[in-house]
Simulated scan of single mutants.
Amino acid sequence: SLPNIADKSLVYHQYDYMVRTDTVVTPGSDAAVLRVKGTKKGLALTCDCNAYYCYLDPYEGGKQAVAEAARNIVVSGATPLAITDCLNFGNPEKNEVIYQFAKCIEGMAEAAEYFKIPVVSGNVSFYNESKNKAVLPTPVVGMVGLMEDILKHTTQSFKKQGDLVILIGENTEELGGSEYLKNVHKIRYGKPPKVDLKKEKMVQDFCLKAIELGLLRSAHDVSEGGLAVALAECAITGGFGFKGEIYTSLREDAVLFGEAQSRIIVSIDEKEFSTFKRLAEEEGIIYQVLGFVDKDDFEFTVKNSRVKKISLGLDEISYIWRNSLKWALEK
């Protein structure tokens, strides 16, 4: 129900996103996808930034904005191509603001250089303050990617009951900067999750290769809200439930709601698992089978020294997710 997580269709349904009838994937998944008429090619587009991460650690927040934008392009089936940015900050005459600005740019530049994605345009907006209080540092990253065959595009939605659901990447105990820590425990300090650019690139390259080979039925990156929320988004938008369990030595709230980077949830036909496993081993990718796509229920059990179980109906979580932003605006 949190505004940063809840369905945003109330906003984007006010705009025409079918101009020239080129839109193949409409808003609501990780990236929009447009066809290039007269060719098999497509373009994926996304905008990303976690301003709260940038407030807690501008350098890591800047890196994360680029990494997540690239991840959203990749899970749609496209190769990241170019970046534009919109850098929004407070009064640069204040030391803390110009520090945020400089460090965000350093982090963005490091990630862009590592991924070899050029920044081709952008703009800077300073003095964004009200009652002498600055906005959170918000370096928004817009990214475009290219797919050679638009028929191979992927979305976040679960597609078929019985499909295996797999996590690519590794869970950690990083809870700093998370929606869970900020909104449930009212803790607004700490370090946001770090981005290991090498691991990030490996996960993205593997996901893109699996999509190109036709192994994946869905792909969705883990971001705000953590693993449990990302699974719920896949279920809600696909109209399917989920049943699964995970064995871990980590604390259960970190597994469920921590926002560790470089993680992607995918679903595959069970018959493709041996091929998926072989490819992951060849590429040195850490993965974990989480469960399977179900019909109606959303159930997820974490087993460490204790057992934590989430058990909800798909209709219940869908109703909350789809209506919470409208309810908040009506208050």
Rank of each mutant, 00 (worst) to 15 (best):
N304Y: 13
E282S: 09
I5S: 03
E212G: 05
S311P: 02
M202I: 09
N123D: 08
D205M: 13
D196I: 05
P80C: 09
I5T: 08
T79I: 13
K303C: 04
E96M: 12
I5C: 01
G62C: 06
A69E: 07
I117W: 05
G176C: 06
F206S: 03
W327Y: 11
G42A: 12
A31L: 15
A32L: 12
P193K: 11
F292A: 10
E106N: 11
K160S: 07
G214S: 10
E212P: 00
P3M: 10
K152F: 04
I268W: 14
K326H: 05
Y52I: 13
A78C: 11
Q100H: 14
G239Y: 01
K199C: 12
K116Q: 15
I98N: 09
Q156D: 02
S76W: 06
V293W: 15
K309V: 06
D57F: 10
W327Q: 05
M143S: 01
G258A: 10
I117D: 00
N95S: 15
S125A: 12
G244N: 07
N72Y: 04
E330L: 12
K37L: 07
I268R: 14
F242L: 07
E60H: 11
M18E: 01
I168T: 06
I268H: 13
T155S: 09
Q204S: 09
G169S: 05
A111I: 15
C54V: 01
V19N: 01
V195P: 01
I246N: 04
P137T: 08
I310S: 09
G169L: 04
K201Q: 11
A67I: 12
E129W: 10
Y319V: 02
R251W: 07
A67K: 04
G77F: 03
V289P: 03
V19R: 00
Y114A: 05
C54F: 02
E252F: 03
T46K: 05
S274P: 01
I5K: 06
Y319D: 15
A235Q: 10
N88V: 14
K182V: 14
E129A: 11
P92C: 11
G258C: 03
K8G: 02
L34P: 02
C49L: 02
Y53S: 10
V36I: 15
Y127H: 14
G177Q: 03
K295W: 14
V302N: 00
V36Q: 11
Y127I: 00
C49F: 10
K160N: 13
L167I: 00
T84N: 12
S267C: 10
I83R: 08
G145K: 02
Q261H: 10
L10K: 09
T23V: 08
V140G: 05
F257G: 02
D48M: 06
I310E: 03
T39V: 06
D57G: 08
Q14M: 14
Y189L: 13
G176W: 08
Y287K: 05
I83Q: 14
